[in-house]
């Protein structure tokens, strides 16, 4: 069962609208409940229209505050003063306190939503240190959708050995890999009666997207037995959690750096199960990549979950069993029960 956390707009009024000054605030509040359910992004660019991405389509705000499909009517143009005000509101008038966030390029808000920044980069010895003169903001609305892993998790359990298979979630951007990972973490942690007892999970949430931590406290339900290491680089984070929290399962988002590979090997040798996600449209594409290609070829991950946007974000295309030499789908989960 896929259910939205909140059907009404109360969360939107409490978690999103307070960051917008008038008149944007009341205009954005005019969004219909149907559109709100599909609202993915609010994009603000200086001297350009305010765009709302609703279900993959763009709408914009008009001069008189209506939300209509982009390209029609006369759009409202965002001026510098208003953008500054939004920046003041998201930073509590404390731009100086955002140094780390500006270096990362985004800020996590209460509720796990996040604001991405673009502007003039500040470099220090060639390393991105922060930004000034912000010109673009992107509010990405976090939707905690629980239930989408219900059908997937049973495919990932090694029933005879009572453990979870090493799993790689492959997905193009915006196809719900983080959402699936979050829900998997919750289920692996809490357990499913009769199928899986639940276990200790260590979650390295480098980009604060999975648990959506606000000041260190998870805003999303990531399960009863989950320890979250927020904002830590994956490679270091995995090793740290392994030593400090003795997890049975470690979950990370967006693998792909060289140092990730070394840590991943460490995890595999320590007997910890790894659940990870990676950007990609299909396996062929992944095989071509230097780091991930190695993992795929060596069949490190025993299960591969392929996602797409075919029937909206979170469409599970296939779950592959990589243990036999010919990888076979395990889509019918009854088939893999002992």
């Amino acid at each position: 069962m896929t259910t939205l956390k909140t059907k009404d707009r109360e969360w939107y009024r409490q978690e999103i609208l307070p960051y917008f000054p008038e008149p944007l605030k009341s205009w954005l509040d005019r969004i219909t409940v149907q559109d709100l359910a599909q609202l993915e992004e609010i994009r603000l660019r200086i001297h350009r229209p305010v765009l709302l991405q609703i279900g993959g389509k763009n709408s914009w705000l008009t001069e008189d505050g209506k939300i209509i499909p982009a390209g029609s009517g006369i759009p409202f143009i965002l001026e510098q003063a208003l953008l500054q005000k939004i920046i003041a509101l998201i930073s509590q008038s404390s731009f100086y306190a955002l140094e780390t966030e500006l270096g990362q390029g985004y800020l996590t808000l209460k509720g796990g939503h996040r604001v991405g920044f673009a502007g003039e980069a500040l470099l220090e010895q060639g390393v991105l240190r922060g930004m000034k003169h912000l010109s673009s903001l992107n509010f990405r609305l976090a939707r905690e959708i629980t239930g989408i892993a219900d059908k997937v998790l049973p495919l990932l359990i090694d029933y005879p050995n009572q453990r979870i298979y090493h799993t790689l979630i492959v997905s193009p951007p915006g196809a719900g890999k983080t959402t699936l990972l979050r829900d998997l973490v919750r289920l692996v942690s809490n357990g499913i009666p009769g199928l899986w007892p639940g276990t200790k999970v260590g979650l390295v949430d480098e980009r604060s997207e999975i648990a959506g931590c606000f000041q260190g406290i998870p805003q999303n339900d990531v399960g009863l037995q989950t320890d979250v290491l927020d904002g830590c680089p994956k490679a270091q984070g995995m090793l740290l959690l392994l030593r400090s929290m003795s997890p049975k399962v470690i979950a990370v988002d967006e693998l792909g750096k060289e140092e990730d590979a070394a840590s991943l090997w460490e995890m595999l040798h320590a007997g910890v199960t790894v659940i990870a996600t990676v950007h990609g449209h299909n396996l062929e594409e992944l095989r071509q990549r230097p780091i991930m290609g190695e993992f795929i070829k060596n069949r490190i991950f025993q299960r591969v979950v392929l996602l797409s946007r075919r029937q909206g974000p979170g469409t599970v295309e296939q779950v592959l069993d990589t243990v036999p030499s010919v990888w076979k789908p395990v889509n019918r989960w009854e088939g893999c029960l002992p």
Partner: peptide, 10 residues
């Protein structure tokens, strides 16, 4: 400009 520039400027 109170609060609205980076630390150095503040």
């Amino acid at each position: 400009g109170l609060g609205m520039t980076n630390r150095h400027e503040q």
